[in-house]
């Protein structure tokens, strides 16, 4: 690329520079970071925690018992998944630019994550938690983070995911314990696995389409 301007700039040259500015600004703003895998990872983590806790009580009972089994199932799974997310995220997004929108979205998830990591152990120690309130709070919090991100990104798929979480949250308040756990498992499948796979597909498509834009 020639870095120096010609002495006499023509209208075509000036127009080309305006186009270059627009193209480069939009290229910089286009999110190149990939986070779809985190939905799949956390989906696996929720299922592992649920079935680990259930397995230690009675593996064949239904509904699965979310807390009365191994008390370490949830804290250990959640904490190790949080560490894994940070490590893999840093490695996968190494060398990619930092965007203001990326910082906004990660701040939302980070805050929600800290809230859950503090609230649920406290409720559990205080003995003030049951299946209904646990599922309702988790689903509402995940609805908040997905809803906020969907609105920031103007992404209907993530807003739909937020709606599924919110519906599951409301349902957990009214349905039976068995129904609440079933709805929770279905919501995890839809919002973590299906949505995560869809997000990864879009990211792969985006990366193929905009791998490099040479100035």
């Amino acid at each position: 690329m020639n870095s120096e301007p010609s002495a006499a700039a023509t209208p075509q040259d000036l127009n080309a520079r305006l186009q270059l500015i627009e193209e480069m600004i939009s290229e910089g703003r286009r999110s190149t970071q990939s986070w779809g895998w985190t939905f799949l990872l956390w989906g696996v983590a929720y299922y592992v925690a649920i079935f680990w806790a259930a397995w230690s009580v009675n593996p064949w009972s239904w509904p699965v018992n979310l807390f009365d089994g191994n008390h370490w199932a949830w804290p250990v799974t959640m904490f190790s998944t949080a560490v894994l997310t940070l490590v893999i995220g840093t490695r996968r997004n190494k060398g990619k630019p930092r965007l203001a929108i990326g910082r906004t979205i990660s701040s939302i998830w980070f805050s929600i994550g800290i809230s859950m990591l503090l609230l649920f152990p406290a409720l559990s120690i205080a003995g003030r938690i049951d299946h209904h309130s646990f599922i309702a709070i988790v689903c509402a919090m995940l609805g908040v983070s997905n809803g906020a991100c969907g609105m920031i990104l103007r992404w209907p798929a993530e807003l739909a995911s937020a709606c599924v979480w919110w519906c599951a949250s409301i349902f957990a308040c009214f349905g039976s314990e068995q129904q609440a756990v079933t709805v929770f498992l279905v919501a995890i499948f839809l919002c973590q696995f299906v949505f995560g796979a869809y997000a990864m597909l879009l990211e792969a498509r985006e990366q193929r389409a905009h791998g490099a834009v040479h100035a």
């Binding site: 690329m1 020639n2 870095s3 120096e4 301007p5 520079r17 270059l20 500015i21 627009e22 193209e23 480069m24 600004i25 939009s26 290229e27 910089g28 703003r29 060398g95 990619k96 630019p97 930092r98 965007l99 203001a100 910082r103 100035a215």
Partner: peptide, 23 residues
């Protein structure tokens, strides 16, 4: 800024918070 590469760099950096050399 008028240099083509410098203009591209300024425009790229204007769209992000930070970016590294390789990007």
């Amino acid at each position: 800024i008028h240099g083509k590469l410098r203009l591209a760099l300024m425009s790229l950096l204007a769209g992000v918070e930070t970016a590294d050399f390789s990007w």
